[in-house]
Design a protein around this nucleic acid. Structure first.
Lengths: 297, 297
DNA sequence: CGCTACTATCTCCTTTTGAGATAGCGCATA
DNA sequence: TATGCGCTATCTCAAAAGGAGATAGTAGCG
């Protein structure tokens, strides 16, 4: 059974004539006859009464319903990929907690305004988990800290973050090694790239990773820092956005470990759905507006 | 886009290999490559990652959903017509009130036992309306009184009925012309073939059609007859079945107008769905059991 | 570094498809 | 009943597509 035959079949059912159906689908009547005949042979049943005006038989009417389902699904699938202006379907984004909180909202808002027919699904997690999701095809793109070593992936430097040390008390100089050793650190769960920076920071002070408390949410983490439980390391922008809610203070980290980039990673552009391609466009525009010096890689 | 390509696509998505997909669908790997490539060209998007193991891209995963819908609809359509033992789908039957009440229940029960997957839709109405429904394709078959004059329809004599005169009082002889003229008759609404018999009966007594009350339901009609509103004409079997509920009495009509056959009419067997073919079988068996002397025409 | 297993490409041959021409049929009109 | 009109079925030929095999290229693995 061919979709082409079903299109002709539907045209015949709707127009009540082989000639009219042929005209509608820009072909000749003999082809319509052949296709219908083939359908009838394949199904072992006559689909149209040929006496005088052409009318669908009971069997023909029954087939109409299924033909509609098949053709509708086909048309939707095609418009998914070939939709000229408006993308549709689904876009699954993976992003880190901090990116989700600080950077994504304006971009998602702009994207949704541009593509209202796309269902956005956002999954949050640490970099390592996000990479896993992307490799498994469970998300269409991710925002992660640090460049992905996998080849054959499209990478775009999206955001540049300055990491700062966060504490409940005002700081003017970096805490001493003894203080750091004695203190606890708040971090996201295993796999978070910021957590690696904490361990890097401690190592640069000759201190092994001490007590590290793991959190799943930014709010909980900042709450604990504000309560004096210990330090954490976060992007300055994220802390600034929450400073009015918590009594927290920041200190710049050494330049060597302070800077961290957030990358947008997705499979090769040839595999992108229009929804994803449009999202990449939106992102590029936002990035260029924010920081004109950054370019795609 | 071809259904064949989608089958191959699904096989590749499920097996994760072009070779395995080719084996599953009994073809060679080069054909799988060609079909997938064609799909990709048509949709303008890459559907599989080819690095090492073959995995669907985001676009591929999106297509999976639509491919499933198309193929499911196709398989269901095919099984509608090619289902070997069990028919499925829908069977729309049109029948007269009296046939529905008296004759159909055992046949529908037998049919439903044989074909539990068929949805039965029963429409009730007078012969003329039923014929209209059949000609318009709104039902698959009808039970009507009197042979359908249309050619190219399959006709089977289903039931033989003896019409009797029904009244609230016991009768031993036919009422006189004067009585008939003065009486009312109960009949189904316009188009009922029994009603024609009433008019025929009156005419044979030299009486024009007098007052005829129209009813939509058998129960209401018999109730009014029992209440002494007037006569009616019905198949003996129908009256017998209701006699214990109403105080009604019958009298045989003149042989010339007493006999009336109920015919099963449907389009040509070549146009039958398996559901309809199976119903015709059930009906034939029931007819043969009841009255071996009757044969198909 | 070579082996293995897989996919892409090419070629040949068969089958299918599409367009045109023509025959046949039903219906309406005279 | 004869005739004309409009429609569908069938036939034919050329073009296109499809299937199978052979082969080249490539990634992954030991």
């Amino acid at each position: 059974m061919q979709l082409k035959s079903l299109r002709l079949f539907m045209a015949v059912a709707e127009t009540g004539s082989f000639v009219a159906a042929a005209k509608r689908l820009h072909t000749v009547q003999s082809n319509v006859t052949t296709h219908i005949k083939k359908l009838e042979e394949e199904l072992g049943v006559q689909l149209f009464h040929r006496a005088g005006r052409v009318r669908p038989t009971s069997a023909g009417l029954a087939l109409v319903e299924y033909a509609e389902r098949m053709l509708t699904a086909h048309d939707e699938a095609v418009s998914l990929f070939k939709g000229q202006e408006k993308a549709c379907g689904r876009l699954r984004i993976g992003a880190m907690e901090t990116t989700t909180a600080l950077r994504l909202p304006p971009i998602l808002a702009a994207y949704h305004a541009a593509q209202p027919d796309v269902d956005i699904q956002l999954k949050t997690g640490p970099t390592a988990e996000l990479v896993e999701l992307l490799l498994n095809g469970q998300v269409d793109c991710v925002f992660v800290a640090g460049r992905l070593e996998h080849s054959r992936y499209h990478v775009l430097k999206a955001f540049s973050e300055e990491l700062v040390l966060v504490d409940s008390m005002p700081m003017t100089t970096m805490p001493s090694s003894q203080e750091l050793l004695a203190s606890a650190f708040m971090a996201f769960r295993q796999g978070c790239s910021y957590r690696q920076r904490i361990e890097l920071l401690l190592a640069s002070y000759g201190v092994n990773a001490g007590r590290i408390f793991e959190f799943g949410s930014l709010d909980a983490m900042l709450g604990c820092v504000a309560a004096g439980m210990g330090y954490t390391v976060l992007p300055r922008g994220t802390v600034d956005a929450h400073q009015h809610r918590f009594g927290i203070h920041t200190l710049a980290l050494p330049a060597s470990i302070a800077h961290i980039d957030t990358y947008f990673v997705a499979a090769e552009p040839e595999t992108w759905t229009p929804a994803l391609a449009s999202f990449a466009d939106t992102l590029r525009n936002a990035v260029i507006l924010d920081e004109p010096q950054l370019t795609a890689s």
